[in-house]
Amino acid sequence: MTDRAHRDGCPSEAGQIAQVDYLHGVADIPFRLGRPEDLPSSLAGLMSAARPTQKAARLLADADPSDLTELAAAADAARGVLEADYGETVADDPQESESNRHNDLAFGIVRCTGAPLPLMVDAALHALSGILDLTERIGTGLADEDWNDLLSGLATAVVWPSSANAGAPWERHTDGQPDSRPDARTRPPQLTGAARPDDALRRWVRGHHVFMVFAQCCATALRCLRSAAEQDEVDSAYAAARAATVLMKASRGALQYAGDSTNDEYVTEIRPTLMPPVAPPKMSGLHWRDHEALISALAAARDCWDTLSSVAPELVEEFRSALDTTYAAHRGVCRHFVGDSSPSLLATSQSQRSAVGVLTQFRDRRLGLMPPGRQSG
């Protein structure tokens, strides 16, 4: 699926991605995002900023997630109705590191000055179209749970901002408790064996696009959690924490999707894009501003989970579990491709730590941001 002709896009964005021409064959680029630091930090601010997205949200929420053709048509129609104003290309941003700039370049991401919330919703629809386009053609190797969580996360990024006090879309309810997955009927189409050259790279790039959307939306939900908890608005805090949990589970699905390839496919299609001369020189998987915004929001919301512990301890544990399994998924992808002892290709020449070891350390630090005494083993 391609951008519609009535979108002129950000000026000069073509020059930003000229160095990675191979991306045009694997994803619909540019993939436009705003700056995560500019997204709303309260539920009231979120719903106000999301007013222009309401029609698009309704179109997607009404689609059947088990019918990929219907879902793809709804995503396309929703993006057409939204008509996000991208504004100008962000240039000379003092809050952007060189590593982030090169990460964006490597994945065809262009930062724009338009209203950040509609930009995030547009990016979610863009990412959903990319996933469905590939999945309808060749299927997916994802487990049912990962596929369902992935779809729920994308729906949440589109629908939740304009109805922030409601449950996440496509949820089933059992005994009054919302379930973060679509209806159990939803099953991902199995791999067909009709893969084309660079399909592994397509999953890799498009999966990263999905993850950046989830990082932005989850960071926003955590900021809203903090705002509501500080004002003793328990219902609003619960709604924000519920959305954050759905998005954290979905992040696991996005990582699994990006790494859904064989070792041979990794070596021939993905690995060359992580090395010179293809990879930008300062590219680093550890310094993406959307992920950094998520980590900052996690740290800022640390004490706010205590507000929920007395009224919804199961939700606090569910978020902790989602956080844990997301890092486990990331470690699993690294282990699958490079083993337990190899450093990341994107690590500095001085670093001898294994990629899996680094991610294990990060996992322990992130779980340490949850309330004391509730850490899993």
Rank of each mutant, 00 (worst) to 15 (best):
M1P: 02
R4Y: 09
P11L: 02
P11A: 13
A14S: 15
V20H: 05
V20R: 01
Y22E: 00
I29G: 01
R32G: 03
P36K: 15
D38A: 15
S41F: 15
S41A: 14
S48D: 13
S48C: 06
A49L: 02
T53I: 00
D62A: 01
A63K: 01
L68Y: 00
L71Q: 07
A72R: 15
G80W: 08
L82K: 13
A84P: 03
D85Q: 10
A91M: 05
D93A: 08
P94T: 06
Q95C: 09
L105A: 12
A106H: 03
I109A: 13
R111F: 01
L117P: 00
L125P: 04
L125C: 09
I131S: 06
I131H: 08
D144W: 00
E145R: 08
E145F: 00
N148K: 02
G153F: 00
A155K: 01
A157N: 11
V158R: 05
S162T: 05
S163W: 06
S163E: 15
N165V: 04
W170F: 03
W170H: 02
G176R: 09
Q177E: 14
P178M: 10
T186L: 11
P189L: 03
Q190C: 02
L191M: 13
L201V: 06
G207I: 06
G207D: 05
F211W: 12
M212N: 14
V213M: 09
F214Y: 07
F214W: 00
A215N: 10
A219C: 01
A221D: 02
R223L: 08
C224Y: 12
C224W: 11
V234H: 11
S236I: 02
S236F: 10
A237W: 04
A244W: 05
T245G: 08
V246E: 05
L247K: 02
S251V: 10
Q256T: 12
A258T: 07
N263Y: 12
E269I: 01
R271V: 08
P272F: 08
M275Y: 06
M275R: 13
P280C: 08
S284E: 12
W288V: 05
W288C: 03
W288D: 03
H291Y: 11
E292M: 11
S296C: 09
S296I: 10
A297S: 14
S310R: 11
V316H: 05
V316E: 03
R320W: 01
L323R: 13
T325Q: 10
A328W: 07
C334Q: 14
R335T: 12
V338K: 12
S344V: 04
S344L: 11
A355D: 14
T360H: 11
T360M: 08
R363D: 14
R366L: 09
R366N: 10
R366V: 10
G368H: 08
P372H: 00
G373N: 03
Q375L: 13
G377Q: 09
